[in-house]
Design a protein around this nucleic acid. Structure first.
Lengths: 128, 128
DNA sequence: CTTGATGCAAAAACTTTGCAGGTCA
DNA sequence: TGACCTGCAAAGTTTTTGCATCAAG
């Protein structure tokens, strides 16, 4: 019987993922976690993110070639990538109406969709 | 003065990109090109794709963590990724209405957007 | 001929894996 | 205490770079 233990490293990483306002890169998680755990190894971050992914608690999203992780269960949502500061935000409003099963021009049967918006986030807009 | 030469390798790779029906991975380009140029090195493929990208003739798109390249100047379009066969198609119909400058809920100023649809392509639907 | 381009191999960047020692239950 | 977990380092992957040689003009 295998068990899955609660450790200081896993707790910290899990908390970071839950507190995030948008998806995070592996390096982001590592950096933030080291505030609490200076000696944390990058391998543990990779292993823990993989564990949480296998548990379905988080999942990866790819943006501009970078693999980021975000918590699951946020419901249908999309992302906004700020072209000024590079941060990625989660959007809870969906700009498309494509129910699963919709047949798209060309005969493509749509089961899901992903949208990413690019532009300027409120912080960067205010900084002008 | 720097020059940029026309070579057999570049011609072949350029032709492959122009003939593609959707974005291609580096390995796809390499495989296809080796039909004509058996000795083609992968480094040349990377260098040529980078060159064409710098020239604005092609550009990268990321899908499911993979970096693919497609020709530029196709106008506004999106992608359809078939969950059965894995191929990526180019769609010329856009499902969202977000003119540049639109302010999205939350105060995000939208400059551009990307949409990827997932489902079953016509070929796979017909194969059932 | 001159200089840019290619192929090979080494290097760099990013992930995963093996191990010995540390920690949770 | 036993089994799981961690950090470190080695091993994979993928992409970039250095170099001697080749070839476009």
């Amino acid at each position: 019987m295998t068990a899955t233990r609660s450790t200081r490293q896993r707790d910290v990483i899990t908390r970071i993922m839950q507190a995030a306002q948008g998806p995070l890169a592996v390096a982001d998680v590592h950096d933030r976690a080291r505030s609490d755990l200076p000696g944390l190894g990058i391998a543990t971050v990779y292993r823990t993110l993989k564990l949480l992914t296998d548990q379905g608690r988080i999942h990866p999203v790819t943006l501009d070639g970078e693999t980021l992780y975000e918590t699951s269960g946020q419901g249908h949502h999309h992302h906004f990538s700020c072209q000024d500061c590079g941060r990625v935000f989660t959007l809870h409003t969906c700009p498309v109406a494509l129910p699963s099963g919709t047949v798209y021009p060309g005969g493509f049967i749509v089961r899901a969709h992903e949208v990413t918006l690019y532009g300027q986030c409120p912080d960067c807009a205010a900084r002008v």
